[in-house]
Design a protein around this nucleic acid. Structure first.
Lengths: 329, 329
DNA sequence: CTGAAAGCGCTTACAG
DNA sequence: CTGAAAGCGCTTACAG
């Protein structure tokens, strides 16, 4: 209810002075400052940020879009992003796309209507075309998924290396027929991971057989279908690398339900390392991604861009470390 | 970059007319409207919502706070809330508290600085005292968790009834020593559930023994400790009701890891019915909550409040239906 | 060190 | 049906 005007009147100063106190302008005389602060407290005054934002032409708000929240993979990233936004003094709006274009548009509109200053795309939340037009006009950061041809900072892990390590681990255990259940899209991370998988096989003197590689959506039926598709080609497998913990958990469930003709003693390694990998039976060996840090770093880079700190202006790839954690599979 | 002013100039009308077109004021002559719309399109003009918000003294934004996102329980609620916000033309900021007071304060500040118009508290995201002061000043809706003495709409399920049904199911199967692993706090939902559990026992002619009831935090160690706490009192149990799917999954994990001296053939029923209950082995029988609907309805009620539609002004409890879904435990 | 005044980009009562 | 003007609550260059 109260405004700078009323505070000014009560404190016997001008609105300019109140504003200066509010913004910690060191030019204000100590005594004046104290009086104003006292009045502010006494009136329980809070500045109207709607006005401040308009005047400063800045919302101090960023948005992060993710495919969904149902996978704990994304919630961890969101958690890191939230912490970073707070640390750097920004508001953050976290939205899930759920594969619906109109939802994505809602968030993009925040940018277009000045309600947000920059945006972070996690995983494959948008297509190349949209991304290109946005990158030209607004500060954008990519998290997890790089887009070929798009000139934007991308914070991710070394997917190729990680898949390489997972494959090497399975080979080390003596597995020789390793299937790769990839993500749905031909995204850059999927491609990089398959590269790493391939490299490890070749290094071990094994042939790369495309029949052992297929994609699956993030639901039980699709994963069962994917594994059975490989099996159906007459391929026998003794190891599997899965695109996510969730996918791996579906494989275990499929095996248990006899929907998949495999034994759960199969070598199984998944990406992500969320708590999902720990609550299944058997628990799943996985490539643990630094999810919190990926979210945090993405926001950090975006803030750097917003503040136009050209010295630290981030460009290109930011690679964060992953780790292979051995569990029961 | 462009503003109503520039659009007005190009269309040879006043800014007032442009604004009327923007807001679909039917008073504008069709021809004028068309011309303005054309210029808007041609200039690719988007209104600056920072200005509109200030002028209208409304941000068209609501905030929903949840304890965390790591439990899919909360992400489903958030999903419903997001959909509702879109349907009713509001922006929504979804924040997770992570048990940190400073994070909660961040979101409360959105209210105090006019950046948000109303707030939804999911589960126990705030204490009674804070809630009371907020309810006095702002439109507030509670989701999932009712607070005694706080006069706010609360959207939830019939927790007592649900726990009653879960207990009856276990009794029906012949279980006679049923433990209740509750949530951490003495919240109203926990209390209601214990009531239902108690009622079912008494109806079956069994005694209610407080030794069989204990609380646990949402992590593995705490749940193991809770179950072993009951076991340590010399209580033998053949059935367990758990506060959440996650807790139930920890119990199964504890049994498998031999940290809990029970067999996984134990009767186990959990609350929530998220996908967690499906990926465990064995899968968990649970009380399925209408999570998406709880989120959706919470936003709907809040919007009703904001629009001051006193006819539909919501008051008191809104109870949504739950369902007992039998799985393997 | 402080104040008067302009202005951020909209909307809306008022007049015509 | 349309326009001129005031005003939402701030911040900031300018003058003193």
């Amino acid at each position: 209810m109260s405004s700078v005007k009323e505070v000014a009147k009560r404190a016997n100063v001008s609105v300019a002075t109140v504003s200066r106190v509010l913004n910690n302008d060191p030019v204000v005389k100590q005594a004046t400052k104290e009086k104003v602060l006292e009045v502010i407290k006494e009136m329980n005054y809070r500045p109207n940020l709607l006005a401040k934002n308009l005047r400063k032409q800045a919302s101090k708000t960023i948005v992060m879009v993710l495919p969904s929240m149902s996978n704990p993979y994304f919630s961890e990233i969101a958690r890191g992003a939230q912490a970073a936004a707070y640390d750097f003094g920004y508001h953050i709006i976290i939205g899930t796309i759920e594969s619906k274009r109109w939802i994505l548009d809602t968030y993009v509109n925040l940018l277009k209507t000045n309600l947000a200053e920059g945006m972070i795309f996690v995983s494959s939340s948008a297509d190349n075309e949209l991304l290109q037009t946005l990158v030209d006009e607004y500060p954008i950061v990519l998290c997890t998924e790089n887009y070929p041809g798009i000139e934007a900072v991308c914070v991710t892990i070394d997917n190729k290396r990680a898949a390489y390590e997972a494959t090497v681990e399975l080979l080390r255990r003596g597995h020789r027929s390793i299937a790769y259940i990839a993500g749905n899209r031909q995204s850059s991370s999927v491609l990089a991971r398959i590269e790493g998988y391939k490299e490890a096989l070749l290094e071990a003197g094994l042939a790369y057989n495309p029949d052992f590689v297929t994609g699956a959506k993030n639901n039980f039926e699709s994963v069962v279908e994917a594994v059975n598709g490989i099996l159906g080609k007459g391929c026998r497998m003794d190891g599997v690398i899965a695109h996510s913990d969730l996918q791996a958990s579906y494989i275990l469930k499929g095996i248990k339900d006899r929907r998949i003709a495999l034994d759960d003693s199969i070598g199984l390694i998944s990406f992500d390392g969320t708590f999902i990998a720990e609550i299944t039976n058997p628990s799943i060996t996985s490539i643990v991604q630094p999810l919190y840090d990926l979210g945090y770093a993405s926001v950090h880079k975006l803030v750097l861009k917003l503040q136009g700190d050209s010295a630290e202006a981030p460009e290109g790839l930011v690679i964060l470390p992953h780790a292979l954690v051995i569990r029961e599979t």
